[in-house]
Design a protein around this nucleic acid. Structure first.
Lengths: 338, 338
DNA sequence: AACCATGATGTTAGCGCTCACAAAGGGGCG
DNA sequence: CGCCCCTTTGTGAGCGCTAACATCATGGTT
């Protein structure tokens, strides 16, 4: 085993380059007033030694760690994961070090622990990807001392958040269905302590009212295919229903299966729409009409906001992103009146 | 805006408690030989001041950051994401600070940048969740100076890895199919520069030989539903095929759709099996027979290994985890010979 | 010719913490 | 009663770096 040689430090570089450590520091942080020759010498020494600055020392003296905490649920669903990925990428691209905490459960204790962990690390800001209200409340209540940005949560009452206009998504879906001639459109919602679930519910309801239709009471799901399947079984009992708007694609997937089981064809007898446009959506039976969201943009905007807040600028509200309806084969006009 | 008061440091606690900073340090790190009263006083002062140790300062003097780097692909697929989640959780549970880098593309440049980023952070170890060979090679070639543990990659030639026995998974699937009476079993593989894809391919091939069957040449996919759909279209042209073993559930999903399109019923005409047991697998049409893997165990073991390597212990090979066949409704005996 | 702005570099201090060592006090034992 | 050892606490140095200031040429300006 090669005896661990001490990693080179700034002083080593300085010695090799024949300059002071401060000059090395200047080159590393490319400050002004360095002669080209000196810079060259220093760069060369750095290269030769394989030197890299010690982040801890730098953070210590600067009083800034450059670390951004990301709190997310441990779910492996397409939406949250996609947002998390893009948040992390955008953070890294902006020169931050993203550090994630993925919570298996959204208990108060778990959240407090997560925040504690992040504070210990010295994060400069926190991005929350839990659209779950209570979670948000707990983190806010912790007085983290650093800016908290919410991605895709309840963005109404607080300006430091970014997300997609779920209300508009639901409206677009409902209007599409109404436009095809549907009148009995059922909504299978997500859990209502999620802001996104509520926004989709409200968008649907509003669009129904606007179309002069009476929205039947929605069925509450939990984002899972299983809940979609159960909802579908209920809908099988209701022959008047000709269209179902599922709060996400997983629910729609379960729905498709239940409808298949009870012999209702899609889209012949019933139209089905989801939200998210998961990669599998185009390959379901039948290919699913759904709503595409630009998750990458959410991530980028979240980090933009973080940068602004870290710099001490006031948080202007970020406009919501506009989702896009993707029409495939799971929607069609309702069957002729019987 | 409350004027930013300097965060309390150890000296502040010491002053308030009437002891030296060193005594505070001892309490914080709960060292031996501290009288109960002193500990009490210090703890009280810490509480009152809301003190928390500065991680950078600590890392600087200790020469250890406690940070573990996780390199993963930016994919949002169930398997990799699940492993990543559990690795992160296990790392946090072990007192480390996990930091992930998710690569949108597996180019050399991107990987080098990722490693560079992690080294800058001062990681003590790296966990790679890319089963992709080349990625692994690039990271290994970087001489990171810290242990690299591979989760779910090519584990054969190197001891510092943990994973599930994909070869056994493929065998179990194939034997299940053979046991049902199938003789023309096609494999739709993952990309063959992925170790897992190769292991599944080999397991299938071996099981076919062992059963005295001639394995037809496999169709190569890329893990996506789309590739599964395309493969399915090919299989539609081959009436002799009565069973398909897909390298993952997404591929199986696309396959199901293609077979549906061309009028081959599942499992009546063709049996289909996937791998991963994604949450949706039970709600496909029909519910998918697949292989369940204990991803949480992979994560835990990876961190166990990391701890051992960081402590300087030799890396004993970790035995592969055994996957579990989950039989649902997409497999049945082949149709009677015509 | 005296002056000072400017660029290039060096010197010093100190960020907040842990490590190594020193020092003080108390009890057991011959 | 003196010695030694153990417990408890304190002191000083220094981890690797950046910020602030000091220094020293240089060259244009009056």
């Amino acid at each position: 085993m090669s005896q661990t040689v001490r990693a080179p430090v700034m002083a080593d570089v300085a010695r090799l380059a024949g300059v002071s450590h401060q000059t090395v520091s200047r080159v590393v942080n490319d400050a002004a007033h360095i002669s080209p020759e000196t810079r060259e010498k220093v760069l060369d020494a750095i290269e030769r030694l394989g030197y890299r600055p010690n982040t801890s020392a730098r953070a210590l003296v600067r009083g800034r760690t450059g670390i951004i905490g990301v709190i997310a649920t441990a779910s492996v669903e397409f939406g949250p994961v996609s947002i998390q990925r893009t948040v992390e990428q955008a953070a890294a691209a902006a020169g931050f070090f993203p550090t994630s905490v993925n919570l298996p459960e959204l208990s108060t204790a778990a959240l407090e622990q997560a925040v504690d962990h992040l504070r210990t690390l010295g994060v400069e800001a926190v991005v929350m990807i839990a659209g779950h209200d209570e979670a948000l409340g707990i983190v806010r209540a912790q007085r983290t001392g650093v800016p908290v940005v919410v991605a895709q949560g309840d963005l109404g009452r607080d300006s430091s958040g970014v997300g997609v206009d779920q209300w508009a998504a639901a409206r677009a879906v409902t209007e599409h269905l109404v436009g095809l001639g549907h009148r009995e459109i059922v909504h299978v919602s997500g859990p209502l302590d999620w802001a996104e679930a509520r926004a989709r519910l409200e968008g649907w309801r509003q669009a129904m009212f606007d179309a002069g239709l009476r929205p039947a009471s929605p069925i509450t799901g939990d984002w899972s295919s299983e809940s979609g399947f159960r909802a579908g079984l209920q809908i099988c009992q209701r022959p008047e229903v000709t269209a179902v708007f599922a709060a996400n694609d997983q629910i729609a997937l379960g729905l498709l299966r239940a409808l298949y089981e009870c012999g209702r064809t899609v889209p012949g007898d019933v139209s089905v729409v989801g939200v998210d446009d998961i990669p599998e959506a185009a390959y379901l039976i039948p290919p699913l009409t759904t709503v595409r969201q630009d998750f990458a943009a959410v991530g980028r905007r979240a980090i933009d906001l973080v940068q602004r807040l870290v710099a001490g600028e006031p948080a202007e509200p970020v406009p919501l992103l506009v989702p896009e309806l993707v029409v495939r084969s799971s929607t069609a006009p309702p069957p002729p009146l019987r």
